[in-house]
Design a protein around this nucleic acid. Structure first.
Lengths: 272, 272
DNA sequence: TTGTACGCGTTATCAT
DNA sequence: ATGATAACGCGTACAA
């Protein structure tokens, strides 16, 4: 049998409630009792049971994260940032891939709700209307609630500054990192000074950059391959993770989240 | 207030225990009662509480996954495979990055154990000795217990077959995908027929492939960038995920896992 | 400052 | 085939 709170209470000669209070750092506990209980806790190797705690406290210190596709190249980077913040706040992260299927998505949500998750992160589309818990939408505006997104217009400005009078040509893969980027870049620029080729997303084979081109690769920071001599426009996945974690924690803990929408700047990095 | 099992029982005019049995598909239940209870369940929109279930059943349908670094380019791919199998088996996945720090690792483990995880996956090193629950080690041999790994010797064979009599030159990044690959490739091959350059891992800027080289990039399937004209040696992260999920489920469910070590072949893919 | 006692929502063990 | 009731381990008003 595992060592339980009653065991600790018995060994310390106090009541379960006292142990509970010591554990939760209740201020109205005598330092004598506190120390005694702590020493018993350590001696017995007692570890509180999160499940039981959840049952009576009606929450779980757990949040659920919905991806469309976990194998997307930036998914891990996002999680890295998100998990870092969450673990510092004693929260566990449950990941879910929905494949964009509405039915599967709802099922997954209900399963997570039955686990009493404290919050949900939506990276695969707008939040379900009946989510019952706080949520953050990432990468796209949310009809209701908080959303964290990348400032694509700013990305366009960066590219324009880089291009100067050159023409900007955008080659867009099937899942571009900066969807809608093209809207912010008027195509009718002066030719003649050269061309800036922007590769956005995972491009089909054969469309790779040609050496000698002046080019920008839209990518993630941790791409296993890279193109020497290319500029890079980073999709700030890690920062999206840390930021949405903080925003979610704030809304869960009731601190007002002032802006309904938070924007993050992409990073343009020169060749080296 | 949420709809609870007692509510259903009351509305159906039966005992909580009966509802529980209906839910768990207990065979010794009259079809009349069964249908009545089910209809009440749907009418009331009752959803069982996983936390309460966990408390009394002493398990959680949850498994924990330890990464050293979630932002590793293959982390998402691994998770994609792993989560797919787990979700089909009604299991949730909790992810954790340990950064290779032993202390943090143990803390994380204890936190997960207090959540009554049913199993653990170790991608960041050999399993902790006192894990208390079944585990699978991925990517490296485990001193004790089951491990799933990539057959690096087979990868070497693929490369040798590809190279023929050409010299194989390995450029290894700081976190190579195929650690130890070099050991299986004797360096003293005939020169003169050309060179095969193998790029393994995330290479520092400047060490990228030169066009015209005959080259192989060790990478993941979902790299956002790629080199046209290069061969690719895939680190089969997705397959590692599905396989280790199945292996873990089997050991959790007590089905004997025959081989203590399972090996997975990498995939060599031509340029296109 | 500490103890009592009940509630949280299920599962499991006896009865019937 | 079903009901009554005791766990499960902890939080928390309320009482002392």
């Amino acid at each position: 049998m595992r060592v339980t709170m009653s065991d600790v209470a018995a060994a310390a000669g106090v009541n379960k409630a006292t142990v509970s209070r010591v554990l939760r750092g209740d201020p109205r506990i005598s330092s004598a009792t506190g120390e005694r209980v702590w020493s018993v806790i350590k001696a017995l190797g007692y570890r509180p049971d999160a499940i039981a705690r959840g049952l009576s406290s009606r929450s779980s210190d757990t949040i659920g994260v919905f991806f469309r596709d976990l194998s997307a190249s930036w998914a891990g980077e996002f999680l890295a940032g998100f998990e870092r913040v969450m673990s510092r706040n004693e929260c566990e992260c449950i990941v879910r891939a929905t494949g964009g299927d509405p039915q599967q998505r709802r099922n997954a949500m209900f399963r997570l709700l039955s686990r009493r998750v404290d919050g949900l992160v939506w990276l695969d589309g707008p939040p379900e209307p009946d989510a019952e818990v706080p949520g953050v939408t990432v990468g796209m505006p949310s009809p209701s609630g908080v959303s964290v997104l990348v400032d694509i217009e700013a990305a366009a400005s960066l590219l324009q500054g880089l291009a100067g009078r050159k023409e900007i040509e955008i080659l867009q893969g099937e899942r571009p990192f900066f969807p809608g980027l093209i809207k912010f870049l008027p195509g009718n620029r002066n030719k003649g000074d050269g061309t800036v080729k922007v590769f956005d997303g995972i491009l089909p084979p054969g469309s790779g950059p040609v050496p000698g081109d002046f080019r920008v690769i839209c990518t993630t920071r941790k791409s296993p391959a890279f193109f020497p001599g290319s500029w890079k426009l980073y999709w700030p996945a890690f920062e999206l993770g840390t930021l949405s974690a903080r925003v979610l924690l704030n809304t869960i803990r009731g601190r007002g989240v002032r802006p309904e929408t938070v924007r993050l700047l992409p990073v343009l990095s020169g060749p080296s």
